[in-house]
């Protein structure tokens, strides 16, 4: 079991490779990738039972990145977990690459279901957890959603269903960075209070600092012990976390850095060109 400090170092490398990929692609979503990086690192390196040598291993835990635009973070996480060579990140979004702009289950090992159209991954994850209950499979489904994504109605349709079926094998994480393309989530269409909403929908809810690795690990440990209902972890995050000029800037939702910006970002993250 790795320590939180070790996971922080891994998260740093994941951010570096995600950004190198976005830079090489000339497009992509750095803001939401960086807000979710620590969450994905905690899950893949500290919580989930997966085998990079056997991505379809029977009994593995499954993760659905419902906010599929954060694909660079997921890919870099999978790469550092051993699913493929991190240097492949430089093929991101290129013609013929298995690293598509949004996660494609038929191309990238470790991707459980193709996502990108917001809200659907959340609902599909509910379906996966229902299937595991029916099949009496003792494993978890994790689903990561954005806070802006909670504006999609299908999320709440699925949230009702998860509570109805008592899906304690389902853990949702809301990457609550409070920014979306058109601005601040609270202004565009307020979704807060997220915790109270999920609680009202019949979920067990935990709040956590989405960049505090130890707190994330502790919260997942608590979440795994919940019985009889689905769990929602509301992770307060910073969009663009780790790069000063990207932090809390809606403009960095879907934009690639130029050469200069990449150099500056890598310097801040502690990486090299």
């Amino acid at each position: 079991m790795k320590t939180a400090a070790e996971l922080n170092m891994i998260a740093r490398d994941i951010r570096i490779d995600a950004l190198r990929g976005i830079h090489a692609a000339g497009s992509g979503h750095p803001g939401g990738s960086f807000s979710v990086t620590d969450i994905l690192t905690a899950l893949y390196f500290g919580v989930m039972n997966v085998d990079p040598a056997d991505p379809c291993m029977e009994g593995r835990d499954r993760l659905v990145l419902s906010k599929g635009h954060a694909a660079p973070a997921l890919y870099a996480t999978l790469a550092h977990r051993g699913f493929f060579d991190p240097e492949e990140m430089l093929s991101l979004r290129h013609m013929g690459s298995f690293l598509q702009g949004h996660p494609d289950m038929h191309k990238c090992p470790g991707v459980e279901i193709s996502t990108g159209s917001l809200g659907q991954g959340f609902s599909a994850a509910v379906g996966m957890a229902i299937a595991d209950k029916l099949d009496k499979k003792d494993r978890r489904t994790f689903v990561v959603t954005g806070d802006g994504e909670l504006q999609e109605g299908i999320i709440w349709e699925a949230a009702l269903q998860a509570a109805k079926y008592g899906l304690d094998n389902l853990i949702a994480v809301v990457d609550w960075n409070n920014l979306q393309i058109d601005g601040v989530v609270d202004t565009v269409k307020k979704v807060a209070p997220v915790d109270a909403k999920f609680a009202a929908f019949g979920w067990e809810v935990f709040n956590v600092d989405g960049h505090d690795m130890q707190a994330l690990l502790d919260t997942f440990e608590k979440a795994l012990k919940v019985s009889g209902k689905p769990v929602c972890i509301v992770a307060k995050t910073v969009k663009g976390k780790g790069v000063s000029f990207m932090e809390n800037q809606a403009g960095w939702h879907g934009k690639a850095p130029n050469d200069e910006q990449l150099a500056q970002a890598l310097k801040e993250l502690g990486g090299e060109m």
């Binding site: 289950m105 459980e112 279901i113 809200g119 659907q120 991954g121 959340f122 609902s123 599909a124 994850a125 509910v126 379906g127 996966m128 957890a129 229902i130 299937a131 595991d132 099949d135 109605g153 299908i154 349709e157 699925a158 009702l160 269903q161």
Partner: peptide, 15 residues
């Protein structure tokens, strides 16, 4: 919830 049904159906089928 027809939309939810279709996405859930995908999740169940892919299981």
């Amino acid at each position: 919830s027809e939309q939810d049904m279709m996405a859930e159906a995908a999740g169940i089928a892919l299981s």
